[in-house]
C-alpha cells in the first residue's frame, strides 16, 4: 500500500488537530480502513491512531438516564455489556449479528458507524465509481447490483450502508457526540448520514478532523426493552452482510401498539428509519395485518436500482418478521444465532 505516516494521538484535541490536516484519517480497529488501503481505494497520507486516547473506551449512564458509549469501545465488549443487554437489547443483537467474533473484537463503535459500503465496484479500482471519485460514473448501475439499494438512491450511487449496528440506533434516534476543529456538537444517526443526490455521492455530515467521541442511547429507548428485536436476512447463517435487515421496537398495551420504532438495513445508503410505518402502527392493533400495512408503508417509495426488485419484497417480510418477533417479546437470553431469522420463535413465524 501507499506509504503513510503514523501518529498516535494522546487526546481528543491532538487527534482532532492532527486529523484536520488534509490526507489524514482516524485509525480505530482498522478492520475496514486497512482493507480499503490494501485495495488502494483509500490512500491516506497519515493515520491518526485514536486507540490510546484516554477515556474513549467507557460505557457510562448519564444524568438523564441515557447510556453514553465511548467511540473506542469494541463491538464485542459493547454487545456483552449488562446495561446494554438489559436496556437496549436490539442494539446488542445487531452488534452480534455483524461480522465475525474476531472482527467484533477489533471493531469499534466509531469505526462501525463510519464503515464504508461493500459495493464491489467501490473496492475495484478499475471500475468507475462516483463514491470513490465524483464524476467517474457508477459501474454498479448496469453491473452486479442484486444487493444494492431500493430506497433513497439516485443514479449517482446505488450503494447501501452495510452496518447492522446502525439499524437499531436509527430506530432509537440515537446520537453521536462529535468533536471537530470548530468544537463539540451532537448529531442524530439520521443526520449523520447523507443520501446520494444528483451528482452527489452519499456520505456523512462529518468534516475533516471531526472525531466521533461517543454514542448516546436516549433514555427514552429503554421503554422498548421488553419488545425489541433485530432480524437480519443473509446468504449464510453467520458472517455475511445483510441482504435486508430490520430493527423493531414496540410498546404494546391491551393488544394495541402504543409506540413503535422501526428501521431497515441493507436498503439504502443509510440506516433507514421507517417513520411512515411507525405512524401506521401507532395506536393500531398488534396484529399481523397491522404489521403488513406498516411494511407496505415502509417500502411505499421503494424502487429497484437494478436486478434487485426481490429486496423490496424481502424488506417487507423481514420487517414483518422483526415486528412479530418484537411483539413476542425480547428473549430472556441472547439467542445462539443473534439476529438470525432462525432465532425467531414459532410465534413470530
Amino acid at each position: 500500500m501507499k506509504t503513510f505516516d503514523y501518529q498516535r494521538a494522546e487526546s481528543v484535541e491532538t487527534a482532532v488537530k492532527a486529523a484536520s490536516e488534509p490526507g489524514s484519517v482516524f485509525y480505530a480497529g482498522g478492520t475496514n480502513l486497512l482493507d480499503l488501503m490494501k485495495a488502494g481505494v483509500r490512500q491516506p497520507d497519515r493515520l491518526i491512531d485514536i486507540t490510546r486516547i484516554e477515556g474513549l473506551d467507557r460505557i457510562e449512564t448519564g444524568k438523564d438516564g441515557s447510556l453514553r458509549i465511548g467511540a473506542m469501545v469494541r463491538n464485542s465488549d459493547m454487545a456483552r455489556h449488562p446495561t446494554l443487554l438489559a436496556e437496549y437489547p436490539a442494539v446488542a443483537e445487531a452488534l452480534l449479528a455483524g461480522a465475525s467474533a474476531q472482527l467484533r473484537n477489533a471493531a469499534t463503535v466509531g469505526g462501525n458507524l463510519m464503515q464504508q459500503t461493500r459495493c464491489s465496484y467501490f473496492y475495484d479500482r478499475h471500475s468507475a465509481c462516483n463514491l470513490r471519485e465524483m464524476g467517474q460514473g457508477c459501474d454498479a448501475l448496469d453491473g452486479e447490483n442484486g444487493k444494492h439499494a431500493v430506497l433513497g438512491w439516485t443514479k449517482t450511487c446505488i450503494a447501501v450502508h452495510p452496518s447492522d449496528f446502525c439499524v437499531p440506533l436509527a430506530a432509537l434516534g440515537a446520537e453521536v457526540e462529535v468533536t471537530g476543529p470548530d468544537g463539540h456538537r451532537r448529531l442524530t444517526i439520521d443526520d449523520l448520514y447523507t443520501l446520494p443526490g444528483e451528482g452527489q455521492a452519499p456520505g456523512t455530515a462529518l468534516r475533516d478532523g471531526d472525531l466521533i467521541t461517543a454514542l448516546i442511547l436516549p433514555s427514552g429507548g429503554k421503554r422498548f426493552a421488553a419488545r425489541a428485536r433485530y432480524m437480519k436476512l443473509r446468504d449464510r447463517t453467520s458472517y455475511a452482510f445483510a441482504i435486508v435487515s430490520a430493527a423493531a421496537m414496540l410498546q404494546i398495551g391491551d393488544g394495541r401498539i402504543k409506540d413503535a420504532r422501526l428501521a431497515l438495513g441493507g436498503v439504502a445508503a443509510k440506516p433507514w428509519r421507517a417513520t411512515k410505518a411507525e405512524a401506521v402502527l401507532n395506536g393500531a392493533e398488534a396484529s399481523e395485518a397491522s404489521y403488513r400495512k406498516a411494511a407496505d408503508a415502509a417500502l411505499a417509495d421503494a424502487a429497484p436500482s437494478g436486478d434487485n426488485a426481490h429486496k423490496i419484497e424481502l424488506a417487507k417480510r423481514i420487517l414483518i418478521r422483526a415486528l412479530k418477533s418484537a411483539a413476542a417479546g425480547t428473549p430472556p437470553k441472547m439467542p445462539a444465532l443473534p439476529g438470525s431469522v432462525f432465532a425467531a420463535g414459532k410465534e413470530a413465524r
Binding site: S120, H126, S127, R236, A240
Partner: peptide, 23 residues
C-alpha cells in the same frame, strides 16, 4: 464476473462465500 468487463466481482472471502461453522 462482471458481464461487461469480465473482472471478478467477489474476489475475497467477504464476497465469495463458503460455509462457516454455523452453516
Amino acid at each position: 464476473h462482471d458481464k461487461r468487463t469480465g473482472r471478478p466481482v467477489n474476489n475475497d472471502f467477504a464476497g465469495y462465500h463458503i460455509p462457516v461453522l454455523a452453516d
